[in-house]
Simulated scan of single mutants.
Amino acid sequence: MSLILLLYPTLFLLATIRVSKDTFPSGKGGELKRLQVEQSLVEALRQALAEPSGQRLYKSGKLSGLFPSRHGVHGAAAEQALREGLLEIVRTETKGKTVIEWVRLTPHGVEFLHARESPLYALQELRSTLQLNQQAAPLWLMEMRNSLHALEERLAADARKWLERLDALARRVEETLRRLEQAAPLVPPEVAEAHPWAIDALNYLERRRLAAGPPANGVAGCCPLPELFAALVPQHPNLSVQLYHEG
């Protein structure tokens, strides 16, 4: 302890922040407000220390001031600075209904600022911040779980819609293929009766044409007769060369 007193003799100067119980709501929100007010107060005191001759208490338009606003966190910090004697009013100016206050840093304000710039106070503030984050962690985890659950449901719904579209497309393809396979080129009944292999021959020629793609130079390639005969024999073993040529 003596070592700490030697290195930082002003660590133990008392500078209590007096805030009434009604100033901020209780709980986590009140602690967060307190930290925000103190941060605004420390920043203003640093600025006042840099210009000891005096500055405007509040910023006005393009004119600089220690506090950006008279309301909210900055307004509460300014009221605390005057109430606790951290800043003192050196003069006032009246413009219409607005009173402009000029202030400067007091010795008590210097001690207040030094105490909050010390390593001990920084560690205490870090501890408060860690405690706030620890308290907020369960809520954050719950929100993250809810977000992930909603994302999972959305992805599952999108996947179901996509699979339904794929299934419908697959059914259409299967139906089209079935119709194409069952469809046979129209030939006169007497030709089909006299030459049963004629329908299969026409089907083979059609499949060959589709497999060959667009004809080169607009002229479709011819199927050699031996090739067509070889394609028909597996389906019509009794087909002879003579019957084939007669057809």
Rank of each mutant, 00 (worst) to 15 (best):
V103E: 01
M1D: 13
R208W: 15
L6D: 15
V19L: 11
F67T: 03
N238V: 05
S240W: 03
L57S: 05
A184R: 06
F24R: 00
L87R: 01
T92R: 13
L6V: 00
K28G: 01
T10H: 15
D158V: 05
G213S: 06
E175A: 13
A48F: 00
T98A: 12
F67I: 01
N203G: 09
H71S: 11
L202M: 11
L205R: 09
D158W: 08
L180A: 08
P226D: 07
R56I: 06
A150L: 09
A184N: 07
T16A: 13
V42D: 14
A212Q: 15
L35S: 04
V103I: 02
E181T: 09
T23V: 12
S128T: 07
F229G: 04
E125P: 01
V73Y: 05
E190R: 12
P196D: 07
R104H: 10
L225G: 01
P138C: 05
A15I: 01
H149R: 07
A231C: 02
T10E: 15
G85Y: 00
K161E: 15
L180E: 15
R18L: 10
V241E: 13
L32S: 05
L139M: 08
G96K: 00
G54R: 00
E175L: 10
V19Y: 02
A198S: 14
P215Y: 00
H195N: 09
G213A: 07
A211H: 06
L3R: 08
L132V: 03
L132D: 03
P234W: 09
